[in-house]
Amino acid sequence: MRAEYVNSFYKAIKEVFELMIDIVPQRSNMRMVDSLVSNKDANVILEVKGNLQGTILFSFPQDMILKMMKIMSGMDVDKIDSFASSALGEVANIIGGNALTNLAEQNYICDIAPPQIFVGEHKALSIVDEKALQLTLTTPIGEFDITISLNENQSE
């Protein structure tokens, strides 16, 4: 796992969160994991294809998502319903798009598939061929994880 993959996503997360949620997440823990596990209340998966291929998993606790929705909409949101989950998926999609723009500057040309959102499912989503990198980010409204499993596509 190259550092530029992680840095591209971290930079995109900071920019999108600052614009949309008015906060800048800070890196805390980073660890290698064997599988993509949804260990929080709501999860968004982005599949990456192109010069790099693999999966990005965002995992958020419910309380943090509800606070994010309040900051964005100005309204109280008391559960992760279709409104909240689609907004969350779109935020992750925008982060993914920005990260791919950052990667393109380093000559990795990739696309992402539409986000898949899983709410309330704590389960292993897939076993990855090589270890994935899981980064925990802290914010004043909670902690969330991003797990990055990306490899260079040998057939490209």
Binding site: S82, S86, L88, E90
Partner: peptide
């Protein structure tokens, strides 16, 4: 209803990104 809520969530995000950036 669920489909309109889904649309509402996306619309909010698109609008903030478009105007904010």
């Amino acid at each position: 209803e669920a489909k309109i809520q889904e649309f509402g969530g996306r619309l909010m995000t698109w609008l903030i990104m478009h105007v904010g950036r």
